[in-house]
Write a protein that binds this DNA or RNA. Structure first.
Lengths: 336, 336
DNA sequence: TTGTAAGCGTTATCAT
DNA sequence: ATGATAACGCTTACAA
């Protein structure tokens, strides 16, 4: 079967077979403009017979809307991003949009070219999870006027819509859980302090502890980079010299798991000797032993909200949606 | 800045500014047809001035090629699929193609509509990792004549190109490693035996053991479904009654981790009491304690090959590329 | 080397 | 309610 350069069956073929004009076929397909029952039937059956599927490039070109949502992430292997991709694709599909995906590897040039490509495909909007070069991305976005939403990490400038979680509240949740278990010597492994959400998490954590009369000694706070390895090193720097810590909150699960890895390598037992709380609730959290108590991000809602925001975005001013985290208590924490 | 329905700057604008015809502009952009140095300069500067970016829908419509690769996966949260997405996107981008992504959730209807959508976007090819309904997918593919490649799991019919690993050899690798450590009472947790690759892995494993004079008792083989939970149950059914097993190969890492989870909950130590080998080498493998000895799949090469195969595919007959796995030895196995 | 014009497959405007 | 026809923004014969 020679299949290489077959001409697509087009609206014209349908029109010919149904003995109507192309416009009528279009009307039948889109169903917004009235068309007589009899002709509709003829058209419908012609469509069936030819198994006609309207070409989306032509439609997108004409309507200046590709029925396409672009998603930009730094990479896809991290569970967090994989979740975003999953849920965003689902939400898009539900609304009849397809997802076009790009990872910049924290390379601003790559990111720029991705955005460019998306725009050139008449995407109806772009969702960013992490931006490698804020100002540059902003510039392109505002130049082209494509709707955009940032998730997970808020942008400094208020010019873009975003869906984030209440990071202060995340810190509070972790702190209150550990306090309730009777811990008083509590440490924290943060993400990069350049990132505002990490600072927010930390201050929520510190304030909640303080409210219980517990001080967060600054030697007990160590900065990581959200990666597994940085969790290992952070664990080392917290426990190499004995400081009497009995509990740690890591600002994401990967670092929590890294810290656990270090502790176990030292023969320190979790949770008998030290309680660990993570954040994100990636699937890994249930798989390790001990399973990880963690502050859970509502990934599904974040994504759904983001897509809604993106596609409903008439020229209104940018919105910011804030969702609340919860906490899942598992085996890695216990009463002192 | 009113940005909502601005007309895109088009090739016509460039032509006007450079005082040439559209075709000349097109020639300059695509660079295949000779054009005089002077005019090229005028056109180039006009392009700069207007910061013209050719619209990809128009181009794709005209050329009957969206410069787009479709990727169909069952879901994106599993590390395996996340890896595929990552590497395939990279490979595509390197060749100037964008990636459009869809997850069918093992729902054949959804899968069909995804494929349809992709075709309607004039994709240059579709890569499948797992197919939810083989025959149906096949039908659509061959009806539309779009190039397609299956990765990770070979299709029964030889009508499609595929990139797979040598699963027999994977089994051999696992078996030989465990034999070398002196184990003789060795079990296996397989994926679904309906899947041919699982049967291949098992026979490779069994044959290699046999070659060393070791029998694989059929009570020591239990079937899982590649999920974490099934690894837990498989662990249970292998160790609930004492059978004296000292080593296990799980056909993927998730099940291996599940088995470890079960063993630890029973107070059985890995690797002191039981050695465990996984397969895939997902990032999790290095993160758990003990880190997991595992048969590693060359994800990056698989994806690169798949994209190459897909895009180089002239109307030749379907090809099958087989890649070799290796083994990474870590903490979860030790000499008996 | 360059320009003209047709075509890719839709939708939208304007008649009828 | 339906049909012609001009866009949408590009490539590609065919001419010049």
């Amino acid at each position: 079967m020679d299949s290489s350069r077959r001409r697509n069956v087009s609206i014209a073929d349908v029109a010919a077979l149904a003995r109507v004009s192309q416009s009528t076929v279009s009307r039948v397909i889109n169903g917004n403009i009235p068309v007589e029952e009899a002709t509709r039937k003829r058209v419908d059956s012609a469509i069936q017979i030819l198994s006609f599927k309207p070409n989306l490039l032509a439609k997108g070109l004409r309507k200046r809307s590709g029925h396409l949502v672009g998603l930009v992430v730094p990479e896809t292997v991290h569970h967090t991003f994989a979740s975003f991709i999953q849920f965003i694709e689902e939400s898009c599909l539900r609304l009849g949009y397809n997802l076009i995906l790009g990872n910049h590897q924290n390379d601003p040039d790559l990111e720029e070219s991705l955005i460019d490509n998306f725009v050139r495909r008449n995407v109806d909007g772009i969702i960013f999870s992490r931006v490698s070069d804020e100002s540059r991305a902003m510039r392109i976005i505002s130049r082209t006027g494509v709707p955009a939403v940032v998730i997970d990490r808020a942008i400094e400038k208020e010019s873009l819509s975003s869906v984030v979680i209440d990071n202060t509240s995340a810190g509070t949740l972790a702190a209150e859980h550990l306090c309730a278990l009777g811990h008083t010597r509590i440490g924290c492994i943060t993400g990069s302090m350049k990132i505002s959400l990490c600072r927010e998490r930390l201050s929520g954590f510190a304030n909640a502890l303080e409210a219980k009369g517990i001080a967060l000694d600054e030697r007990w706070v160590v900065e990581g980079d959200f990666g597994f390895e940085s969790g290992v090193s952070a664990g080392r720097s917290l426990f190499e010299r004995e400081q009497g810590l009995t509990a740690i909150w890591a600002q994401n699960d990967l670092m929590a798991v890294g810290a656990i890895k270090y502790l176990m390598s030292r023969g320190i037992s979790v949770p008998r000797d030290v309680s660990i709380v993570g954040m994100d609730d990636i699937s890994l959290a249930r798989m390790i032993t001990p399973s990880l108590t963690t502050v859970v991000q509502p990934f599904a809602e974040i994504c759904q909200k983001a897509v809604e925001l993106l596609l409903r975005q008439t020229d209104e001013k940018p919105q910011r949606v804030v969702l609340q985290p919860t906490i899942a208590i598992r085996e890695s924490t216990r009463t002192l």
